[in-house]
Design a binder for these strands. Structure first.
Length: 589
DNA sequence: TCTACAGGCGCG
DNA sequence: AAAGCGCGCCTGTAGA
């Protein structure tokens, strides 16, 4: 086959009632076009050249079908996610941003369609037979999500390639596009595989903390007990503990003049009601957020399947929808439990954000403080700040924009010790508080301030501005400054994490499958016999792996972290040490 | 009766 | 303790 005839891209979209596959070569010329039945496309789609990239409107809409049919995609371009990056990136000249076509620069309709919200990944795999309750006048529900007609998809793909070519730093943006898309694949895969979850361990924790699972509407024994102690201390056997305004009035009656019922404020008062009340709130939180109802809804079949939303945060972090994947209490982590014959490889990055800041600012002093040790210890060792605890809150304050309290007071010391790193976040804050857009290391940009924000600023600068106008303008400028200050760091950290995940995903795919009798059946047809990522949260991952591959997986996790560092920051001397563990409980199967 | 919002708290 | 960034989920209440 000649080079020109090689399949580089496999574009998938709909036409009429069919699914259409279009293969493109490196020059984006069409090599082949094929039409497949809509129900069987995932099965019938012939295996592409494994080096080909799939191109589709929205991974959450297409990939679950492929996974269910037993196919893994090595690489893709998720047009919805990449559109969001390219339309805003300051690395792309405005005229070439993906929301404008050259001949119709003002065409906003195209823009809106590709800006549609993601389809809910859980609905994409749900059976379509469910009749709509109010579907009386046979109007089909308005199509949700981005376009997926083959012509729209091809056109958007070509626009995105044009935008990349026109970028001031195409290399970085291509890296971001690839990493973002790999993340989309992984999110679908992790949802399909699920987190191996021990119902027994979870129930054991609930029972030990709350008491036996209640039948009917009653509260569990331990909750009732603590509630009684609170009401005794309040001197009111009928006191309502679950209504914030009523609880506040009860507290006022016994002389506790708190202005909220938050844990940190109540803890300031010395009164016999405080301890049982805080305990009550803790128990109720566990029960309502991750109690038996959560177990029944989210951990069926021994797998927790959260819905990940890649790119769901403006900074590029993932969000989640359903199940609370981003909020699993640490106390419940023991319920994550490998299948028999399998183990968990768990890793998180120590101080990811300040390390990223050191690298992107080229701050050799901060990189030196970080190298080979706890970064905060390194700051202390350099003599600029006295204790580890202070170094930590100072660094968080610098990245978040603290101005008051201990944190704000300590930031100037960091500014003296690490002028380049602090200069980068300070500059990002100045850009933000004057309304501008900031950009991450690989090219994801924040939105510039909107017209409403500018009106507030203009009003405050006008001749008849009130003190309130000026205060509001100061506050909204400060809010934006803190947002953009954090955006560059949080966003670049998210890019590092995506690069880590994408590389690790590739390394895991190279490991051999295990025999079928050793499979983890609940992981589904694709992952029951292969080591696979099953959890990701900003800077930590969990891999579910056959026991015999534990060491190989741990090695891959470490190696991919090193490669991510070099991919983003080249030879800059920064390291990203992992806290890496092979789960011990798995040994007992 | 239904929806929107605020308070509170879990995670990084 | 929060402060200072980014999230999602649950509850009760206020408002339509």
């Amino acid at each position: 086959m000649t080079a020109a005839g090689e399949v580089r891209w496999r574009v998938v979209g709909r036409e009429g009632g069919s699914v259409v596959l279009v293969d493109l070569d490196a020059g984006l010329d069409e090599v082949r076009r094929e039409r497949v039945g809509p129900d069987r496309w995932a099965v019938e789609a012939p295996a592409a050249d494994p080096s080909a990239r799939w191109v589709w409107s929205d991974t959450a809409r297409w990939y679950p079908d492929l996974l269910a049919a037993g196919s893994v995609v090595a690489r893709c371009q998720d047009l919805r996610l990449c559109h969001a990056i390219l339309r805003a990136s300051t690395l792309v000249p405005p005229a070439a941003r993906a929301d404008r076509s050259a001949d119709a620069p003002g065409d906003a309709s195209r823009d809106e369609r590709w800006d549609a919200a993601p389809v809910d990944a859980s609905s994409a795999v749900a059976p379509a037979g469910e009749p709509a309750l109010f579907d009386l006048d046979d109007a089909p529900a308005a199509p949700v999500g981005v376009p997926d007609g083959i012509d729209d998809v091809l056109a958007e793909f070509r626009r995105q390639q044009d935008a990349l070519r026109a970028a001031s730093d195409p290399g970085r943006l291509r890296l971001l596009i690839a990493a973002e898309s790999a993340g989309a694949l992984l999110a679908a895969e992790m949802q399909a595989a699920g987190v191996p979850w021990s119902l027994d361990v979870h129930e054991g924790i609930l029972e030990a903390t709350l008491g036996a699972r209640p039948t009917g509407g009653a509260a569990p024994a331990r909750v009732q007990e603590v509630a009684r102690a609170v009401r005794d201390a309040l001197g009111d056997p009928a006191a309502s503990l679950d209504s914030q305004p009523k609880l506040l009035r009860s507290l006022h009656r016994i002389g506790i003049h708190a202005r909220s019922t938050s844990r940190w404020e109540l803890a300031e008062y010395d009164h016999p009601v405080i301890a049982p009340l805080l305990e009550y709130k803790k128990l109720m939180r566990l029960m309502s957020a991750n109690g038996w109802a959560w177990l029944d809804e989210w951990a069926r079949g021994g797998r927790f399947r959260p819905v990940y939303v890649p790119g769901g945060v403006v900074t590029g972090r993932w969000a989640s929808s359903g199940g609370g994947a981003l909020q699993l209490p640490r106390a419940l982590r023991p319920a994550v439990h490998a299948d028999p014959g399998w183990t968990l490889v768990v890793a998180d990055v120590a101080q990811l954000e300040p390390r990223v800041l050191a690298a992107m600012s080229g701050d050799l002093a901060l990189a030196e403080a970080a190298r080979g040790r706890d970064l905060y210890d390194g700051i202390v060792a350099s003599g600029s700040i006295a204790t580890r605890a202070e170094a930590k809150i100072a660094m968080l304050g610098a990245m978040y924009g603290a101005t008051t309290g201990d944190s704000g007071r300590l930031v100037p010391a960091l500014r003296r010790a690490y002028p380049r790193a602090m200069g980068l976040v300070d500059a990002a804050a100045r850009t933000g508080d004057s309304g501008g857009a900031v950009t991450t290391w690989l090219g994801r940009s924040s939105a510039p301030a909107g017209s409403e924000w500018h009106e507030v600023q203009a009003r405050a600068g006008g001749p008849d501005a009130s003190d309130a106008d000026r205060a509001q303008a100061r506050r909204s400028a400060g809010d934006r400054g803190r947002f953009t200050r954090n955006f560059v760091v949080q966003g670049t950290a998210a890019e590092w994490a995506l690069a880590w995940l994408a590389d690790l995903r590739g390394l895991l795919a190279e490991l051999p499958a295990v025999p079928v009798e050793q499979g983890a059946e609940a992981s589904g047809p694709v992952f029951s016999r292969r080591a696979h990522l099953c959890f990701f949260l900003h800077d930590e991952i969990i891999v579910h792996a056959p026991l015999a591959q534990a060491e190989a997986v741990a090695d891959a996790v470490a190696r991919s972290a090193e490669r991510a560092a070099r991919l983003l920051f080249g030879g800059f001397p920064i390291d990203f040490p992992l806290d890496l563990r092979i789960s011990i409980d798995a040994a007992k199967g």
